[in-house]
Each structure stands twice: as structure tokens, then as C-alpha cells.
Amino acid sequence: MQDMGIEVLFQGRNFVRLLEGLWVTVRISVFSVIVSILLGIILGMIMTMKNPLLRIITRCYLEFVRIMPQLVLLFLVYFGLTKMFRINLSGEISAIIVFVIWGTAEMGDLVRGALTSIPVHQYESGKALGLTTVQNYCYVIIPQTIRRLLPQAINLVTRMIKTTSLIVLIGVVEVVKVGQQIIEASRLTSPSAAVWVYGVIFFLYFIVCYPISILSKRLEVKWRN
């Protein structure tokens, strides 16, 4: 008999389950990304300050997060916090904490880079016009920063979405995990299901990430004019 792995996708609630798994992925990513962007902007602004103590602290934080593989951070928060402080966090909350810690650090560094790439005379022209510091940032500096930041920020967002696949390992049932469960369950009946299931997962990641990069291209073109 011909092996129709594709049928596995339409058996029972399999496809819906994959979508539910995707929703977990998207939920964690979107929440982490939004919080990371907001905190990252603040962190980036702090990183451009001249205060040496703040510089050292933010630098250490950034290096620490960069050196640690995300998986280790996930284990550290999920298992470590539970063991050490008897705080019981769900896998999803742990994942969000880790992604926010990581995303904020990376975003902060991108914001710092973008802010320092704005020429000094832009700050001074705003000041010379009589804008307050806050107005200067709101109308002159930040809009230009965002335009410079956007391509790298989008890259970070898609990386964060993809890295959520690691959270399987702390027991969160997201899209990849659902896929594995489906493959397991149909191992005997359709051995080639894996190809189809992973194919669909590939496609699902694609439809999440592709619009984001389209949007970023649109904005880049719009802002160039």
C-alpha cells in the first residue's frame, strides 16, 4: 500500500492542534517582542549615557546574555528558580522571562548603536531650536533612530520567533512539540508523516515571519522617499 503521509495532517484534530501549537509560539513571541522592544529602547538610551557605573552594569548584562546560550537561560530560569527559591513558574512564563531578558539586551544594543549613529549636530540643531530634551528625542532623534534600527530589529524579532522552538525542552507544548506528538502517534501507520508535518511547520513559521519582513521592506521604501 502506498504511504500517504499527508493524510496524517487531516486526521482528527491534527491540523487544528498544529495551529494551536503555533498560537502558543506566536503568543510567547509577540508578548516577549513587545516588552523587549519597549525595555530595549529604555536600555539603549541608558547605554548612551556617560555615567561609567551604568555603562559597566549594562555592558555586563549584555555580555552575560550574549555568552549564555538561550537554552541554558531557559533551564536556569525554569529549573533553577524552582530549585533555589521554590518559585514555581510555568514553562510559558519562564519562556517569556528568558525571551524578555535576551530580547531586551539585544534590542538595547541595537538601539544604542542606532542612537550613537545619529550625528551630534542633529541633537544640537534640535536643541538650538529651543526644543526640550524630551521633545528633541520624540521628534528628531527617535524617528531617525527607528529608521536606522528597523532592519536589524526585524531580524531580531524573527530570530526570537524561531528560537521559541527551544521551549519544547522545558515542557511547553508549542508548534514543534505538537508536530512531534503527531509524528509519534502515527509512526506505525504512516512512517513518512514526519516530512509532511515538518513541512507544514516550516510553512507556518514562514507565514508568520514573511509578513514581518515584507512590512519592514515597505517601511524602508516609504521612509527612503
Binding site: 550625528p119 549636530h121 542633529q122 544640537e124 540643531s125 534640535g126 536643541k127 538650538a128 531650536l129 529651543g130 526644543l131 526640550t132 530634551t133 528628531v140 524617528p143 531617525q144 529608521r147 521612509w223
Partner: peptide
């Protein structure tokens, strides 16, 4: 200071218009 600066106009050598 920002209020005082409003009374002073300055034009620099480098073109300093806001590009966006």
C-alpha cells in the same frame, strides 16, 4: 535653557536639517 534658546536662532556650517 530651552526657553532662552528659543530667542536665539543658529545656523551651522554642516547642513543640519532633519532628514526625515
Amino acid at each position: 535653557m530651552h526657553l532662552i534658546r528659543q530667542k536665539i536662532g543658529m545656523v551651522f556650517q554642516s547642513y543640519d536639517l532633519f532628514p526625515h
